[in-house]
């Protein structure tokens, strides 16, 4: 048991931190009050410097990749990182990215599809890969701060990947758990800055115990979600990834509610980035069937069938 990052991971995360401190990762409003700002410049810099290949490198591994997903998710820009960092290295780093993922042929719009150059399908039968033509994707206007799109899954030229579908699901559960934990942390940091500065009744609203306690509970649970996703990334065991995803999804509802309550009317505007985190989190909370599905799968892993 050793819970500190190794030297390579620390260096990797230090450089990542420098990139995330740059204006490329900062908040700016989007033309026509669009709900998301795709971080294309940051994405290109990360790709150029090989950050998306970390999971396959021995000294960095899935822990560094999961932490990268978690850190990037705290940024107000939207970036396809989860699939690229934790799934693509095990499918083949030559696959063009960004990558969109569909699990169990779930209907509806797919995150990142309008920008994706690779589409991955994970279901019980296997892991399949397609490279959809741009005109095959119908972009969908969405509340959820991601580029969203639909595609005719049956019309794609699928190639069966060699990656075991059980392992693929484990990796993807861990990746989504990492993204959700980071997204919630980004929202929390934004709210903390607000309640420190905003004064009412002659004092910062963050000095009221009623506010402090709820944010403290969120802080504790978001940190526990980070630890669970790190464990899932490191062990790559199905029960750990189910638990990490279920836990992060389970705490998201209350966290999102609290963040908006404490941000007040400012959080209703598109001039403030809070919605970037909370609406992404709403969608991630529902990914792969939401917490009931993740916990149900955990129950099967841990205690077997009825």
């Amino acid at each position: 048991m050793r819970l500190e990052f190794n030297e390579d991971q620390t260096t990797f995360l230090t450089f990542l931190g420098l990139m995330l401190d740059s204006p490329d990762a900062g908040f700016r409003t989007v033309a026509d009050w669009g709900r998301f700002d795709y971080g294309a410049a940051l994405d290109a810099r990360l790709a150029e410097n090989g950050f998306f290949e970390a999971a396959a490198e021995k000294e960095l591994g899935a822990v560094a990749a999961a932490t990268m997903i978690h850190e990037i998710a705290q940024s107000p820009v939207t970036l396809e990182c989860a699939a690229s960092a934790l799934l693509r290295p095990f499918l083949g780093n030559d696959l063009p990215r960004p990558v969109a993922v569909v699990v169990d042929d779930a209907p509806g719009a797919v995150r990142f599809l309008p920008v994706a150059r690779t589409l991955v399908s994970i279901n019980q039968a296997g892991v399949r890969i397609a490279q959809p033509e741009a005109d095959a994707v119908e972009a969908v206007e969405s509340l959820y701060a991601y580029p969203m799109g639909r595609i005719d899954m049956k019309a794609q030229d699928w190639v069966l990947a060699t990656l075991d579908p059980v392992r693929a699901r484990v990796l993807w559960q861990g990746a989504v758990a990492a993204e959700l934990a980071g997204t919630l942390k980004g929202g929390l940091k934004s709210v903390l800055a607000h309640v420190r500065d905003r004064h009412q009744f002659g004092r910062p609203i963050g000095s009221f115990q009623a506010v402090q306690h709820r944010l403290a509970i969120n802080g504790i649970e978001i940190e526990a979600a980070r630890m669970q996703m790190l464990k899932a990334a490191q062990t790559q065991l199905p029960h750990d990834s189910c638990l990490a995803l279920g836990y992060a999804q389970g705490l998201a509802r209350r966290a999102i509610y609290d963040f908006h309550q404490f941000m007040g009317a400012m959080g209703l505007t598109l001039e403030h980035p809070l919605h970037r985190w909370t609406y992404r989190a709403r969608l991630l909370r529902a990914e792969m069937g939401g917490p009931s599905e993740a916990y149900g799968r955990y129950a099967t892993q841990r205690w077997g069938a009825a």
């Binding site: 649970e221 526990a224 979600a225 630890m227 669970q228 189910c242 638990l243 279920g246 836990y247 389970g250 917490p291 009931s292 993740a294 916990y295 149900g296 955990y298 129950a299 099967t300 841990r302 205690w303």
Partner: peptide, 13 residues
Amino acid sequence: RMRAAEAAAACEA
């Protein structure tokens, strides 16, 4: 099953 897992997740946290 979900509630059992939720309790186990809190213990793991």
